[in-house]
Amino acid sequence: MNERAATISNQKFEEAMERGGVYAALAFLNGRSPYRYTAIYRFEGEMVRNLYLFDRLGTVASDPSPVPMGDTFCQFVGAPGNFSTSNSLEDSRLDEHPKRDVLQSYFGLPLSRKPGTIFGSLCHFDALPQSIADDEIPFLESVTPELMKHLE
């Protein structure tokens, strides 16, 4: 993505955020990807809580109850940075993961308020194999600070 396109994309993201808050921002981000879902999860020790979830096929009820970190792909976000799998059934890193048959694709990146801490993750995921475009990753990284301003 060239610099002008990146600036326009950031402006459109900010307009979506101003117009409709975090859900509108997630809808905008989802529209740039092939994934069905885009979400924000908060890390709470050994647990993960869904804060926001956008489903391109329609709004789904999101359960705010925390789930064990080990039951999520979010567990891989943070220490080395981003985590991505385009097909969990073919990804040996996920051979023993309890959700590998449920979610086949995932891209997540850490959200943080300050260096060295992780608030949670911004992620795209789907029940079908999908992959994120390489030039989309820097864009997502560039909008996470704006998202963090709107999270509790």
Results as ranks from 00 to 15, higher is better:
Asn82Ala: 13
Glu15Gln: 13
Lys12His: 12
Ala27Asn: 08
Ser105Gln: 09
Pro115Ser: 14
Met69Gln: 07
Glu146Cys: 01
Ser84Val: 13
Pro66Gln: 07
Gly120Ser: 04
Asn2Arg: 06
Ala133Lys: 06
Met1Asp: 10
Ser86Phe: 12
Ala127Cys: 09
Ser9Gln: 15
Leu151Glu: 05
Leu111Gln: 09
Lys114Ala: 13
Tyr52Ser: 07
Leu151Val: 09
Leu147Gly: 00
Tyr106Val: 04
Gly70Met: 15
His124Cys: 01
Ala24Asn: 02
Phe73Gly: 09
Pro115Met: 02
His150Leu: 11
Leu29Ser: 08
His97Tyr: 03
Phe54Ala: 00
Ser9Cys: 03
Met69Val: 05
Pro80Trp: 00
Ser62Met: 11
Thr144Arg: 12
Val77Gln: 05
Thr85Ile: 06
Thr117Ala: 14
Thr144Lys: 11
Glu141Leu: 12
Leu53Pro: 02
Thr117Gly: 10
Met1Trp: 07
Arg49Leu: 04
Gly58Asn: 04
Asp135Trp: 07
Glu146Pro: 07
Gly70Thr: 14
Glu152Lys: 11
Glu46Gly: 10
Met47Trp: 11
Pro145Leu: 10
Glu18Thr: 11
Pro145Ser: 12
Met1His: 13
Asp63Pro: 02
Pro68Lys: 12
Asp126Gly: 00
Ala5Val: 11
Lys149Met: 03
Ser121Leu: 07
Ser88Val: 05
Tyr35His: 15
Met17Leu: 15
Asn87Gly: 02
Phe54Cys: 07
Leu89Pro: 08
Ser92Ala: 14
Ser33Thr: 11
Ala39Val: 04
Phe28Lys: 00
Gly31Met: 01
Leu147Asn: 08
Thr117Tyr: 11
Ala61Glu: 15
Leu109Lys: 02
Pro129Trp: 11
Thr85Val: 14
Ser92Leu: 12
Thr117Pro: 04
Phe125Val: 01
Asn87Ile: 05
Lys149Ile: 00
Ile40Asp: 02
Gln130Trp: 01
Pro68Tyr: 03
Phe73Arg: 10
Pro98Asp: 10
Glu3Lys: 15
Ala79Gln: 12
Ala61Val: 14
Asp101Tyr: 13
Lys149Cys: 01
Leu111Val: 00
Ala16Leu: 00
Pro129Ile: 04
Gly20Tyr: 11
Gln11Lys: 04
Leu122Ala: 03
Glu136His: 11
Asp71Met: 10
Pro138Gln: 02
Arg42Glu: 15
Pro66Asp: 11
Glu136Arg: 09
Glu3Gln: 15
Phe107Leu: 06
Gln75Phe: 02
Ile137Gln: 09
Leu151Ser: 00
Val102Pro: 04
Arg32Ile: 07
Pro66Gly: 14
Ile40His: 06
Ser121Asn: 10
Glu18Cys: 09
Ile8Met: 09
Leu53Glu: 09
Pro115Lys: 03
Asp101Thr: 11
Ser33Arg: 08
Leu29Ile: 08
Leu122Trp: 04
Arg36Thr: 09
Leu89Asp: 03
Lys12Gln: 15
Ala79Val: 12
Asn30Thr: 09
Lys99Ala: 14
Tyr37Leu: 09
Glu136Phe: 15
Arg100Glu: 06
Phe119Cys: 08
Glu146Phe: 11
Asp134Ile: 03
Phe76Asn: 06
Ser86Asp: 15
Phe76Ile: 00
Gly108Met: 05
Glu18Met: 08
Ser86Met: 12
Asn30His: 00
Pro129Leu: 10
Ser105Leu: 04
Met148Glu: 05
Phe43Asn: 00
Ser121Ile: 05
Thr38Gln: 01
Gln11Asn: 14
